[in-house]
Amino acid sequence: MSGDYPYWETVPTRWNDNDVYGHVNNVVHYMLMDTVINQWMIRTAGFDPLRADAIAMCVESHCVYKAEVSFPDTIRMGLRVGKLGNSSVRWEIGMFREDGTLVAEGHFVHVFVGRESRRPRDIADPIRSEMRKLVIA
Rank of each mutant, 00 (worst) to 15 (best):
S2I: 10
P6I: 00
Y7A: 12
Y7F: 10
W8K: 02
W8T: 07
T10Y: 06
P12H: 06
T13F: 12
T13D: 10
R14L: 15
W15C: 12
N16V: 12
D17N: 05
N18M: 08
N18V: 11
N18D: 05
N18E: 01
N18K: 06
D19R: 05
D19T: 04
Y21K: 05
G22N: 03
G22V: 13
H23T: 13
H23S: 09
V24R: 04
N25Q: 11
N25L: 13
N26C: 12
V27D: 10
V27T: 13
V27S: 13
Y30K: 03
Y30V: 15
M31G: 09
M33R: 00
D34E: 15
D34P: 13
V36E: 06
I37R: 00
Q39K: 07
W40P: 15
W40G: 09
M41Q: 07
I42C: 13
G46K: 08
F47Y: 15
D48N: 14
D48T: 06
P49D: 00
P49R: 09
P49I: 03
L50I: 11
R51M: 15
D53V: 08
D53M: 06
D53Y: 04
A54K: 01
A54F: 06
I55C: 08
V59G: 02
V59I: 11
S61K: 00
S61P: 09
H62Q: 10
C63W: 03
C63I: 11
C63S: 05
Y65M: 09
K66R: 14
E68C: 04
V69F: 13
S70M: 07
P72W: 02
T74M: 11
T74W: 04
T74V: 14
I75H: 02
I75E: 04
R76C: 15
G78F: 00
G78R: 00
L79M: 09
L79T: 12
L79F: 00
L79D: 01
R80G: 03
R80D: 02
V81F: 08
G82W: 10
K83F: 10
L84C: 03
G85P: 09
N86E: 13
N86S: 15
N86P: 00
S87T: 06
V89F: 09
V89Y: 07
V89W: 09
R90W: 12
W91E: 10
W91K: 00
W91M: 12
I93Q: 06
F96M: 12
F96Y: 14
F96E: 05
F96V: 08
R97Q: 09
E98N: 02
T101S: 07
T101R: 01
L102N: 03
V103F: 00
E105I: 13
E105M: 12
G106A: 07
G106C: 09
F108M: 06
V113Q: 03
V113L: 02
G114L: 14
G114W: 11
E116G: 02
E116A: 14
S117E: 04
R119W: 07
R121Y: 08
R121W: 08
R121L: 13
I123R: 02
A124P: 12
A124F: 08
P126F: 02
P126M: 05
R128T: 07
E130I: 05
M131A: 03
M131G: 02
M131C: 02
K133A: 02
K133C: 00
L134C: 04
V135R: 05
V135L: 14
A137W: 11
A137L: 15
